[in-house]
Design a protein around this nucleic acid. Sequence first.
DNA 1: GTCTATGCAAAGAGTTTGCAGATGT
DNA 2: ACATCTGCAAACTCTTTGCATAGAC
Lengths: 131, 131
Amino acid sequence: MANLKYSRQRASIKEYLANTTSHPTADTVYLHVREEFPRISLGTVYRNLNLLADMGEAIKISTPNGGDRFDGRTEPHYHVVCTSCGNVFDLELDEQHIQGINALANEHFQGTIDSHTTLFYGTCKKCLEKK
Amino acid sequence: MANLKYSRQRASIKEYLANTTSHPTADTVYLHVREEFPRISLGTVYRNLNLLADMGEAIKISTPNGGDRFDGRTEPHYHVVCTSCGNVFDLELDEQHIQGINALANEHFQGTIDSHTTLFYGTCKKCLEKK
DNA sequence: GTCTATGCAAAGAGTTTGCAGATGT
DNA sequence: ACATCTGCAAACTCTTTGCATAGAC
């Protein structure tokens, strides 16, 4: 439906997401991409991040504190947010396990379930060492 | 640490949460409690909802669209958000399963994991029937 | 040439906060 | 009496949007 046209800004945003595991906020993406495109605006960053998320080429992670975070890894996987430093980490679990949870949930819900997101809370290695 | 004092407003908010399964937003709570306390302010509602959540007497649910939602049920359980109507529903899964996931995640993470929240996406019964 | 994307700035939604006065213990 | 809580309003953060111009096809 949407007639997508190439843009260097979007390409740069996508490339940045593909090459980081830091799960940046929109603002962090903005600050980074601005090094290549000094005149880019936050609005453009948001528009493109949402576009990528809608197309399934990025994932939007809603956390309780602060803004949403974005992830260029699109294969199903989970995240851990450190309650001490706020950073977000990837967590690998069996693909089978992830699909199994959807199936299990479907059995217990009066409707259909397509997907799920899980956010773990804990303390990361670095923050454990500080204490 | 915090010296908590009784307030009718907080009691009313807590009672409302205890008697609904609608997972209301702060604004919905405000509109409801205002029937009993016409001069209550949104700020007070937010302060008390956050207080209750911090004390573990309510749960804050972050959804991608719109504001956070609150839930008076504090036993571990999951939620389904209907991608059609936006409503949030409870989903019962084994308590053992929920604890098992934390244990499994701990094995795969370089740190410690305390808890997790899972949000399922799907279509609720009513929305399925409309199509 | 036409249609989409961008930069800019303003507006919008959701939430928090400082303060003076009311309320609970 | 004293500490906490409230109402009010202003401020703040994050995100979206309208518009004129630049860029892609």
